[in-house]
Design a protein around this nucleic acid. Structure first.
Length: 436
RNA sequence: UGCCCCGUAGUUCAGUGGUAGAAUAGUUGACUGUUAAUCAAAGGGUCGUAGGUUCGAAUCCUACCGGGGCAGCCA
């Protein structure tokens, strides 16, 4: 009779079931026991809390089973939920019954220190640990908030292809593959396709994986990463910057509001993030940035691109993310709109995250003139025939339009306060890692 | 790709020319509120691989393999 009343719940919902007897499917993360009491550290994917087994309250079989449980054994636990300030979660379950589902022997990730390589070799198991779980919970919130934001702003999601026949930007290394009897490449950007989308739907965005075969081995690089690329017709640079800062602030706001426990697990102070919800973000020109760097003793000449030390120095001068506007034409992509009164710069902006996390957004107003664009394509050493469809966008009703790309993992690394982008994706693809 | 650093017990590391070590995990036992629990016991090794120097190499040299950090490139 009582069996029928038993409700199966998730740990996260425990506060709503205080003093009720419930059943939860769990894994054991850790265990401490003495002669007459055992503490079982439990997780079920939604949260972590502990079960208390009192020898006097349960059968000898249950108590012995509890003492015999090993790390990552899965089982059904039945018991009464209690509020208890001695427990970190604030609630715990007083165990009455344990029903083992799957045994676990010699689980490799112990509660002690491990190196990065070892943990990455066991990434498929490491995901169960509290820190990766917290980062990926925030990743999910950022993805959710991204869809909410662009939906409420009137954007249409237009998916860009992953297999392409040519190099969109032509500069960086691409992954080569075969497309029947033709060459094909994995996408390194969906932007050009989004421009076509913007001419059909007005405001569009893509959100998908991106591949760069660069031999980069730094904390800011992944071989495979996810990018959000909005593109907006009838939009000039200033309005695009307003969308960008509104979007980034929206992401931060939602993470603060919906991911408190994950932020706490990571030791990321919400008060620090709170500063990034205030807009507008400061804007400085590339020219001014060069001046600031030289005033700071960095000795950099106009025309060079910023490296990581320069980006960090500039970002450190501000309390919020900062836009760097209008870079030299020579160091930027062919499709950017030339400045109306200066021949040496283009209408673009990079958004630098604070705290040394570097560039998280790159964006620009796009070139609209057919002949200018054709010339730029040739100058970049690209084959105009490959870009014929892209040039068509300037041939049939060209309009001013702007867009940008946000690197999901870079933004997440910053938001979560992690020190490497590999932490911000479930299964990172790195220079020397494609397993697991 | 360049520069720097690291490969020793399941894991994290010490040992820098003379018998292979610690902590922790796992195992066994004790303990009624533990939070990296504590206490006790026994077990656990092709010192990354190959070659060289030496009476003797984990230790010195060379090459290779694997990894980390930084830089370039980029999001």
């Amino acid at each position: 009779m009582e069996e029928l009343l038993l409700e199966t719940i998730s740990i996260i919902d425990a506060p709503a079931h205080v003093n009720e007897t419930v059943k939860i499917g769990v894994w054991l993360t850790d265990k401490r026991s003495s002669g007459k009491i055992a503490f079982l550290q439990l997780r079920d994917g939604t949260a972590f809390f502990q079960g208390v087994v009192l020898k006097n309250e349960v059968s000898e079989t249950v108590f012995n089973t509890a003492k015999r449980l090993r790390q990552e054994t899965s089982f059904w636990v039945t018991g009464e939920i209690h509020e208890d300030s001695r427990s970190k979660f604030g609630y715990e379950i007083q165990v009455a019954e344990i029903e083992i589902i799957g045994e676990s022997e010699d689980y490799p990730i112990t509660p002690k220190d491990h190196g990065v390589d070892f943990l990455m070799d066991h990434r498929h198991l490491w995901l169960r640990s509290s820190r990766p779980h917290a980062v990926l919970t925030i990743r999910n919130e950022v993805i959710r908030a991204t869809y909410e934001f662009f939906n409420q702003e009137g954007f249409t999601k237009i998916d860009a292809p992953i297999l392409t026949g040519s190099a969109p930007e032509g500069t960086t290394d691409l992954f080569h593959t075969e497309y029947f009897d033709h060459d094909a490449y994995l996408s390194q950007s969906g932007q050009l396709y989004e421009e076509a989308g913007a001419m059909a739907f007005g405001k569009v965005f893509s959100f998908g994986p991106t591949f760069r075969a660069e031999k980069s081995k730094t904390r800011r690089h992944l071989i495979e990463f996810w990018m959000i690329e909005p593109e907006m017709a009838f939009m000039y640079q200033e309005e695009s910057l307003a969308v960008q800062e509104k979007y980034v602030a929206f992401l931060i706001r939602n993470v603060i509001d919906h991911c408190q426990s994950s932020l706490e697990t990571l030791g990321r102070d919400p008060k620090v993030l709170e500063k990034y919800t205030k807009t507008p973000y400061p804007r400085i020109s590339y020219d001014r940035a060069i001046e600031m760097l030289n005033e700071g003793g960095m000795n950099i000449t106009w025309g060079t691109d910023f490296g990581s030390p320069e980006e960090t120095y500039l970002a450190d001068q501000f309390e919020q993310p900062v836009f760097i506007l209008n870079y030299p034409k020579a160091i930027k992509a062919f499709y950017m709109k030339p400045h109306p009164t200066r021949d040496d710069v283009v209408i673009c902006a990079d958004l630098l995250a604070p705290e040394g996390y570097g560039e998280i957004i790159g964006g620009s107003e796009r070139a609209t003139d057919y002949n200018y664009l054709l010339e730029q394509i040739k100058k970049a050493g690209l084959d105009p025939a490959e870009y014929s469809w892209y040039l068509d966008l300037r041939k049939y009703g060209s309009v001013p339009h702007s867009g940008f790309g946000l690197g999901l993992e870079r933004a997440l690394t910053w938001i979560t306060g992690e020190d490497h982008v590999r932490e911000a994706i479930p299964f990172p693809r790195l220079l020397n890692r494609i397993y697991p």
